[in-house]
Design a protein around this nucleic acid. Structure first.
Lengths: 193, 193
DNA sequence: ACCATTGCCTACCAAGTGGTAGAAATAGAG
DNA sequence: CTCTATTTCTACCACTTGGTAGGCAATGGT
């Protein structure tokens, strides 16, 4: 694999799991078994590296969601498909969701940058929801708020694993599956008329 | 006000809003118009300062929730009362919820410490929910999971303000009230039989 | 009057930070 | 082989970090 890609991948993990400020370029270089200056050759500054990570993360996220959307039809089935895909993502690549959360914590300018990348996804979801509401397949309410609520709910359920573990809740695949099932039941009751 | 209390308050805000790593003791001292060494006089290390902040935050949180519980009766009314109280808290003292989230990000040892403080609250909520389910006032499901889901949902709705703003969603008192109402509607449909 | 304690300070330090300058290796093209 | 461009490196640097050592004024008990 290309060095620059290796850097990008590890940086995304580090930024997403440990946070931007807690990750030093020296640490990062050490885990990659290269020197810090090699990182700075491919990405001129730490901030630009973060930007590249965010760009890639959003791309990956978009691809995953598109996939979930394409292989589902309408109404509840599609919501279920998306939730399942996000949970799988949270399991396979927790750093992606972690990075998104970290970015909202860091605020501008990187947040503004990320938001521009995510907005198409949210807009798509919103217009789709409006359609579904019109068709009577989803309970009528404010679609923008619903999308954002769903975002934070799914995000919370998918990323709060560390908290769960600290609380003694196990996090085997089975336990995560149970939580997913509960969330789906919850969403179904609340969303479907 | 006592110097040590001023430090504690500012530190909670800084840790909760900007994050632990992004907050230097020098910065903190500067905003308090004292010297860093005065901070280290009252709190022997940065980590101990964080611990003190967490302890105080959990106390404040407990007080607020107890209040919400005491002035409500049972079933839906109590849930509504708690959600409203948390939203008020997120509005008046966003740093409290921010600090909690930051702590789950930092992981052990501080997370373990915080969890010990919060567990009584969660246990209380869980046993209460079990009662309510028995009495048929709340839809039957896994109470532990329900508590944690509710936690992350409310937390998300209450703290994702920065994201909302970046997305162009206004965050006037009225808008927050609308989001609160939507969340309550959502919870009511999902929880009440 | 004495002295110990409290509270805040100045002065300093070792370790680490992101970043610069420029030398050495590597490799493909003519 | 030689020239050139790409990549990685060593050697630094200015600055910030959390933390130590110790001084100095105020306070209050004896």
């Amino acid at each position: 694999m290309e060095t620059s890609d290796r850097i990008l991948k590890r940086a995304t993990v580090a930024f997403g799991e440990s946070g931007y400020d807690a990750t030093s370029l020296d640490d990062l270089a050490r885990t990659l078994d290269i020197r810090k200056q090699s990182i700075l050759y491919h990405y001129a500054s730490k901030e630009l590296l973060l930007e590249a990570c965010v760009r890639q993360a959003i791309t990956d996220l978009s691809v995953a969601l598109d996939e979930a959307i394409r292989k589902s039809s309408y109404g509840w089935e599609r919501i279920e498909s998306i939730v399942k895909r996000v949970f799988r993502l949270a399991n396979n690549r927790p750093e992606l969701l972690g990075l998104l959360r970290e970015v909202t914590r860091l605020g501008p300018p990187i947040l503004t940058y990320a938001v521009d990348g995510i907005r198409p996804l949210l807009d798509g979801a919103t217009t789709w929801l409006i359609e579904e509401m019109k068709a009577g397949r989803v309970r009528k309410s404010e679609p923008e708020l619903l999308v954002l609520s769903a975002y934070s709910t799914i995000m919370g359920a998918a990323t709060e694993v560390k908290l769960f573990e600290a609380l003694g809740e196990e996090s085997t695949i089975r336990d995560v599956a149970i939580r997913r099932k509960e969330l789906l039941r919850f969403l179904k009751i609340a969303l479907i008329p």
